[in-house]
Design a binder for these strands. Structure first.
Length: 928
RNA sequence: GGGGCAGUGGCGUAAGGGUAGCCGCGGCGGUCUUAAAAACCGCUACCUCCGGGUGUGUGGGUUCAAAUCCCACCUGCCCCACCA
């Protein structure tokens, strides 16, 4: 019966929508606006099922908002600069621009097959000169406002290739292409003053963002309160300043540790120690920061031979270098208090350094003997052996909220040996990349070594097209014509050859969408005044601490440089309060989707022995073995891969046959890979958890799915089959549910009304009720980005309608009205089919310009509901009652319930009535 | 190592502190068919003395009431600055 042909109707409607400019979003001050934004893709080659998973639900939400009466802008573009284009260039001898543009062409076509309401007139591509002219312009503005500066930073340097490598190009300290060693090298680079906005970035009060994102950003910024303390080096005039969050423990500082890169190291090192120090520095240069900061690593370090004087007690303390101190955090030097800091404690134990107890733990009778301690004590207590602050209390609070810290800071400031200080884990934003395929940094280095900006007329500094991509050296630095220029006084000068981090491009793309062809500024203030800020932003949570923090910084810097001034004026002229812009927050609401995963993880291979009961093995011994090829001779038990584990019940695949093994309590579990005593919880079962990636060959191509099922079914499946915020493994076997749903609706509508007359009024009333319950369910779900429950509510309506139609008693008008509403509810999810069936029923084009159905609670109401009678919180009986039942009446009925009475002895202690909220039954809980 | 998140039937998942498992997938039984597919109907957590009892990773706690809130643990996933 179903002659649903998605390949025909989808193309047809996409073409018509395009011809009619149905999704063109234009400024219209008479209508409320809604700027819906989904993260722009990197043009890697093919659209991934993950793009569909991120974008089609976002599209459904944008469509819903449009039907709710908003003027919706939902644009799309490409984040087109980046490393993969260069890799392609090197491997296939193709220009990065050619590769990128070809990919964009292909992906644009794939994106269009989604049937999303993208306004393609607004498309922006970050690698086009018309775009990166403004990326450069932003850099210039930031530089002139002292938000950009030059400083040294560590890079992965390949001596073989004479080039800087990305972290992902470095595998085990070696370049992935040549296998040659990579070293850590200091290089002068461009930074933005990210930390200047650290405190403002900690304020989330004006935005509705997911709690985890706010927590991650807060931790990432890592504000800490403490003090800076200056130590004098014993000989010479040198001073070493340290930052500490625990200045109260200064009396317990028994040595100092400098980062190996600390500038004073060479100067203070004694001749006797020099060889050792140099060797250590060289070794440290080879390790990455993540490796170095791993706390489970054995502590290493070398004594410099020099001593410092502890300013509070004049003690002479040795100065060491060690790689657990980072040059990038604080001052690159620490005072080591082995009593109170675990890392310092381990270091002191390893090298036999002195430990002095400075805190008497809360509730302890005496101060611990440092020689008997097995770990540092970082808790609260009373300060001891601490001179001026002896007896003050450290209560565990941060900064001056701890009395001991407060006393220490006051003392340090009075003695002029230190001062209160705030430190951030956040570091300034290093935007320099020694790469070709990025936006050039519009700076010129003059003959006297100073920098000046490229004048506005010189923007954009365009990337030269005739470069050779060999992977050796920096193509821009090797391009003579590009490098040689003149400065403002006509003297020969050199262009900056670093390009910008691509996060710079993606920090402002949603401004460019407003007016991608605008030539007088990054964006047209007339457009900005209407559309800004972004109302809803959707994308992956993996951007929590990078893109999503950079773009907030960028927006605040733009605000402070007056880039919104004109926009704000226009807002005023149109009666709009510009407060939202003044907050300096680019996106008011953020929601994250999860990831669609693919592939599999194998389970542990086990040998299990014990006692069989039928087919089930009660195992008293389980051993994890290497793989499927190790069956010992004469083995009796179960051997195979664990496919599933629920507590102590294990499903084992033994040569294709499933066996159930129950691991008895106290069974011996042996897992060689996990040291120490093992238990059943550590057994790994088969899981499908891997991320999709080309190298694993488990990427799902949406084009094939669209061809097979149609875009509407793929959209419906992606929205229905997952918790959108979680994502999950790809499982094509689950497509059939949504597929049946779409086909059923098609069949239902094309079959026409089952009854040409008025039908049974009671049935018609039921239909109306279920339709309104569906309006409520779908609206509530879409409002909350809960796409799976939206589809679920529509499937429920399908089931109910099928049952009503089967009676043959549904009237023509009731049926037509039900179909009319159902199609409008489906329009955001399955836009093509909804449009086709809408036209089939003779309603006015386009369904996407219709209003969202209005919910009427009266119409949705049931005549009778079930009163749940509970005793001590357990359901004991049910009684049919009116949904409006009052408390007293409900309690009376509940107490009269026969079954419930069996559980009530004597007088109830308490009776609680829970009113029947929307969609829920009233309840009475009788406590006895 | 640091940070974040998650754990519910065979599977994907639902549940606004208030009857755990909505909606699907799969499976089992049936109808129709020469047969199969499709479609349609029914069943589908465990135990039970048939009264009921148990059950949301484990162990505690708060509450009249906990999948939901709190604490600890176990397991897994994601992010960590030149991948985007």
């Amino acid at each position: 019966m179903s002659d649903y042909k998605p390949e025909k109707i989808e193309k047809k409607w996409q073409q018509k929508w395009d011809d009619d400019a149905l999704y063109r979003a234009e400024v219209d001050w008479t209508k409320p606006k809604h700027y819906a934004l989904t993260m722009l893709p990197y043009p890697s080659g093919d659209l991934h099922i993950g793009h569909w998973f991120a974008m089609t639900p976002s599209d459904a939400r944008a469509r819903y908002m449009r039907m709710k009466g908003y003027n919706v802008l939902f644009p799309m573009g490409f984040d087109a600069f980046g490393l993969p284009a260069e890799n392609a260039a090197i491997q296939r001898n193709i220009h990065p621009a050619t590769w990128t543009h070809a990919n964009i062409e292909r992906m644009r076509k794939q994106l269009k097959s989604m049937g999303a309401m993208f306004d393609w007139e607004r498309e922006a591509v970050s690698s086009e000169p018309a775009y990166y002219k403004w990326t450069e312009w932003f850099f210039k503005q930031f530089y002139e406002a002292d938000l950009a500066y030059r400083n040294e930073a560590v890079v992965n340097w390949s001596p073989t290739l004479q080039t800087v490598l990305a972290n992902e190009q470095v595998i085990d300290g070696k370049d992935e292409r040549t296998g040659q060693p990579v070293i850590q090298k200091m290089m002068a680079q461009w930074f933005f003053r990210y930390t200047r906005y650290a405190d403002e970035l900690l304020d989330f009060s004006k935005i509705d963002w997911p709690e985890p994102i706010k927590i991650m950003q807060t931790n990432w910024i890592g504000r800490s309160e403490g003090a800076k303390v200056t130590f004098k080096v014993e000989t010479g005039d040198d001073e070493i300043t340290v930052y500490t969050t625990r200045p109260d423990t200064l009396w317990g500082a028994t040595f100092m540790v400098l980062a190996p890169e600390h500038p004073l190291v060479d100067k203070i090192t004694t001749d006797a120690q020099r060889a050792q120090i140099d060797a250590y520095k060289e070794a440290a240069a080879k390790a990455t920061e993540i490796e170095r900061s791993a706390e489970d690593r054995e502590k290493t370090g070398v004594f410099t031979g020099a001593y410092a004087i502890n300013p509070v007690n004049e003690e002479k303390i040795p100065i060491w270098i060690a790689d657990y101190v980072m040059i990038t955090y604080g001052t690159g030097a620490i005072m080591a208090v082995p009593y109170g800091d675990q890392r310092d404690f381990e270091f002191a134990r390893k090298f036999g350094l002195k430990i002095v107890a400075v805190v008497k733990p809360e509730g302890a009778d005496s101060v611990p003997n440092p020689d008997e301690m097995t770990e540092a004590y970082a808790g609260s207590g009373v300060m001891v052996n601490s001179g001026a602050i002896d007896g003050t209390v450290h209560n565990g609070a941060k900064g001056r909220k701890s009395p001991a810290v407060d006393a220490a800071i006051t003392y340090l400031e009075a003695q002029k040996i230190g001062e209160e200080a705030v430190n951030y884990r956040l570091r300034d934003w290093l935007i320099s990349r020694q790469r070709y395929w990025g936006s050039p940094i519009p700076m010129i280095k003059t003959v006297d070594g100073t920098y000046e900006t490229v004048p506005d007329g010189g923007l954009p500094v365009e990337l030269p097209a005739d470069v050779e991509m060999t992977g050796f050296g920096n193509p821009l630095a090797n391009h003579e014509e590009f490098v040689h220029t003149v400065d403002s006084q006509g003297r020969p000068a050199r262009r900056e050859t670093d390009t910008m981090d691509t996060f710079m491009c993606s920090s402002w793309y949603f401004f460019r969408y407003l007016s991608p062809k605008y030539n007088d500024a990054p964006f047209d203030p007339e457009e900005a005044a209407y559309w800004l800020p972004v109302d809803v932003y959707t994308g992956g949570a993996e951007h929590a601490t990078m893109h999503l923090l950079y773009t907030r910084w960028f927006n605040k810097a733009m605000r402070d440089l007056g880039m919104f001034d004109e926009t704000i004026e226009i807002m005023h002229d149109n009666g709009r309060t510009p407060e939202e812009i003044m907050y300096g927050e680019p996106m008011l609401l953020l929601r994250n989707q999860g990831q669609v995963l693919g592939g599999e993880r194998p389970g542990d291979y086990i040998l299990a022995t014990g006692r069989f009961e039928g087919d089930k093995l009660f195992a008293d011994r389980v051993e994890v073995v290497n793989g499927p090829n190790a069956v010992p001779a004469g083995f009796e038990g179960v051997f195979g891969e664990i496919t599933k584990r629920t507590e102590s019940i294990i499903q084992v695949d033994m040569a294709g046959v499933n066996h159930v093994v129950e691991v008895v309590p106290d069974a011996e579990v042996i897992i060689p890979a996990i040291a120490g005593e093992n238990n059943v919880n550590q057994l790994k079962h088969h899981l499908e958890i891997q991320r999709m990636s080309k190298s694993k060959g488990n990427v799902v191509n949406p084009d094939e799915l669209v061809e097979k099922y149609g875009a509407d079914v793929v959209r419906a499946y992606l929205m229905f089959g997952f918790d959108w915020t979680k994502g999950g493994p790809w499982d094509p076997s689950q497509v059939s549910g949504p597929q049946r749903w779409v086909h059923d609706v098609w069949t239902m509508v094309t079959a026409g009304a089952p009854n040409s007359g008025g039908g049974d009024p009671a049935i018609n009333r039921h239909v109306e009720r279920k339709v309104h319950q569906a309006i409520d369910g779908v609206s509530y779900s879409l409002e909350r980005f809960s796409f799976n429950t939206a589809v679920s509510a529509l499937m429920t309506l399908r089931n109910q309608m099928q049952a009503f139609i089967k009676t043959g008693q549904i009237g023509k008008d009731a049926w037509t009205n039900a179909m009319n509403v159902m199609l409008r509810l489906m329009a955001p999810i399955t836009p093509h089919m909804a449009e086709e069936l809408w036209a089939h029923l003779g309603f006015d084009y386009s369904i996407h310009q219709q209003e969202w159905p209005e919910y009427d609670a009266e119409k949705a109401k049931e005549d009778m509901v079930t009163l749940v009678v509970m005793v001590n919180g357990k359901p004991r009986g049910e009684e049919p009652v009116s949904p409006e039942i009052e408390k007293d009446e409900a309690i009376k009925i509940a107490l009269a319930n026969e079954n419930a009475q069996r559980f009530i002895e004597g007088e109830p202690k308490k009776i609680i009535f829970i009113a029947g909220r929307k969609g829920q039954e009233p309840k009475v809980n009788i406590v006895v």
